[in-house]
Simulated assay, not measured.
Amino acid sequence: MTAAALATLALVCAVGAWRLTRANWTYRAPHVAIVLWQALGVTWGLAGTGALLGYALEPYGRGVLRGLGDFGAALLLDRSPRPYDLPRILALITGLTALAVLILVLVAAGLQTFRARHRHRALLALIAREDPGVPGVRVLDHPGATAYCVPGLRSQVVVSQGALTLLSADELAAVLAHEAAHVRERHDLVLLPFAALRRALPWSRVVRDAQGEVALLVEMAADDAARRCCSARRLATALLRFGTAGAVPAPHGALGATTSSAAVMARVERLVDPGPALPRRVRYAIVTFSVVLTCSAPLLWLIPR
Rank of each mutant, 00 (worst) to 15 (best):
A221Q: 09
H178C: 06
F194D: 07
A250Q: 00
L191R: 15
A177N: 07
L235F: 00
L235D: 00
R241I: 09
T244R: 09
L240W: 05
Q211K: 07
A210Y: 12
A250Y: 06
V206S: 11
L239H: 01
A232L: 04
E219S: 03
E219L: 02
T244P: 05
V183N: 13
E213T: 02
T244Q: 08
L240C: 04
V190H: 15
R228N: 02
R208L: 02
G246K: 10
L189M: 15
V206R: 11
P193F: 14
A236V: 09
G246P: 12
A250N: 05
R208S: 00
A236N: 03
L197S: 14
L240F: 03
R198K: 07
L201D: 04
G243D: 12
V218P: 14
A222W: 06
T237S: 07
A232R: 04
L192H: 14
L176W: 09
C229A: 09
R199A: 07
D223V: 01
L176F: 11
E219D: 07
V190G: 11
R227Y: 03
L201R: 10
R208C: 00
V175K: 07
A250F: 05
R186C: 07
A215K: 09
L201P: 05
A174H: 04
A177S: 13
A250E: 03
A222T: 07
P193S: 11
A195S: 12
A215G: 11
A247H: 14
L192F: 14
A195L: 13
C229P: 00
V175P: 11
A195M: 13
C230N: 15
S231H: 00
D188S: 11
P202F: 00
V183A: 12
A177E: 06
D188Q: 14
A226H: 00
V214P: 12
M220E: 05
A238L: 08
R233Q: 05
L235T: 00
D209N: 07
S204G: 01
P193I: 10
D209K: 08
S204H: 03
L216C: 06
V206K: 10
L239F: 01
D188I: 10
S231I: 01
S204N: 00
T244V: 09
L192N: 08
L191A: 13
A215P: 12
R199S: 06
L240Q: 04
R199I: 04
E213Y: 08
A181E: 15
D224C: 03
M220F: 04
R241E: 13
E185Q: 14
Q211W: 07
E213C: 00
P202W: 02
R199E: 07
R227S: 04
R228T: 03
A236S: 06
A210S: 11
L192G: 08
P193R: 14
V248P: 03
D224I: 01
A238Y: 12
R227V: 01
A177C: 06
E185M: 12
V175N: 09
L201N: 05
L239G: 04
A221N: 09
